[in-house]
Amino acid sequence: MRLSSYVQGLAAVTIATVALSTAGLMTRLVAIDGPTLLFLRGAIASVFLLACLLVTARGRVVADFTRLGWPGLVICATSAACAVLFIGALYTTSVAHVAIIFATCPFVAAGLAFMVLGERPSRSALVASVVALIGVLVMIGSGEEGTLAGDALAFAMTFMVALWTVLVRRYPDKPALPCTVVSCLMSAAIALPLASPLAVSSHDLLVVLVFGVLAFSLGFLLLTIGSRYLPPVESALIGALDAPLAPLWVWLFIGDTPANTTLLGGTIVLAAVCVHILAARWVAAGSVVPADS
């Protein structure tokens, strides 16, 4: 038996979101500035993923990069911009503000998908998006304050993430691994002029190395693969899991206890996404076909 591409996409995007939600924990474990972190993460991830490509593609490496074309390069540039804006927002405004602003991503993605792809989001996806937004609104009750510049970066990041999901859905034939390699290289190149990689301690370098390979590289690769099989609004909805998961990792590994409003709001977001995923799985159950069919 094999699962439908839709269910595979749900699984890939969900696993990717869990992996990528550790970005906040990584920033708490190191004592380096944003540009340096962005450069190291992009450089480490690109080298690791390029090595994976050389092993899996072998003689097709150049051909795979050539297949990107202009649409593929636009996808790469968009995802690189997402990384730059995300790190910038985390360093200049509160996590709560980034969470509430990013929670609007499903609505932005739904609007862009309708205009660009003509896709109408399902009623369950829209209902789950509203519930998730309510959950993040509750999380704002923690009392954190942000900055205007940081909030602007978070808004820009949200729009770029929504645009990226639409582009990946629009051009599903673009090879995921080369796309991710080029994206990581772009983000590293953007950060390099302001980065100080030679001043990083061995501890911080090890932390970024572990997270860059296990969380960012594999997570972003799965996100690129899974997003091509899902409507953009659903990819963005699952991405809302970052809101409750990010403070959860900090609590588990560092001991910072989340505020009661964060716990309550995170539970609402988690429930909304889980219920939607389970409902979608039941609906897609009829799409499971024998492997030899």
Rank of each mutant, 00 (worst) to 15 (best):
R60Y: 10
S187I: 12
A195V: 06
I44A: 02
R28M: 07
L53V: 05
V288A: 07
A125W: 00
P172D: 12
V181E: 08
S183D: 14
C274I: 14
A215H: 11
V166T: 08
P232M: 03
L3G: 03
V108N: 00
A240V: 14
L177M: 12
L264Y: 05
A109L: 01
A195R: 05
W251M: 07
A125T: 02
A259L: 11
I101T: 02
V250N: 07
N260V: 15
Q8F: 15
D204F: 09
P35G: 02
A284Q: 12
W70C: 00
T92S: 00
R228S: 12
A291H: 13
V250C: 10
G59S: 10
D64W: 09
V269C: 00
A285F: 13
W249P: 07
V55T: 13
A280Y: 08
L3W: 04
A99S: 05
L245R: 02
A113M: 00
S287K: 13
Q8P: 11
G42M: 04
L270A: 08
L148H: 14
L192A: 07
L270V: 08
A259V: 09
V213N: 09
F155S: 13
G135M: 02
D256H: 15
L248D: 10
A109V: 00
T180I: 09
I225V: 14
H276F: 15
S227R: 05
G265D: 01
T27Y: 12
G24T: 10
F253A: 10
A99Y: 01
W282V: 15
T104G: 08
R228V: 10
T104F: 05
V275T: 11
C179K: 06
G24E: 08
A215N: 13
A57V: 03
D256G: 14
S124P: 00
V13K: 03
S5F: 13
A11D: 02
S5Q: 14
V161N: 09
A51P: 14
A96Q: 01
V138Y: 04
A176L: 10
S79I: 03
A45F: 12
S202P: 12
T56I: 12
L209Q: 15
W251C: 09
G72Y: 03
A96T: 00
V182C: 03
F114K: 01
V47W: 05
S21I: 05
G286A: 09
I101Y: 01
F48Q: 04
G266V: 00
A280I: 10
V74C: 08
V200E: 06
V213E: 06
G255T: 04
P231G: 14
G212K: 08
L248E: 09
S187H: 14
G72L: 06
F65G: 06
D242L: 11
R41P: 07
R60V: 08
I238N: 05
T17G: 13
V13G: 07
V55S: 14
V108F: 01
L153R: 09
L252Q: 06
S235V: 04
V62Q: 12
V116D: 03
G118V: 07
L218R: 14
L40K: 04
V98K: 01
P106W: 00
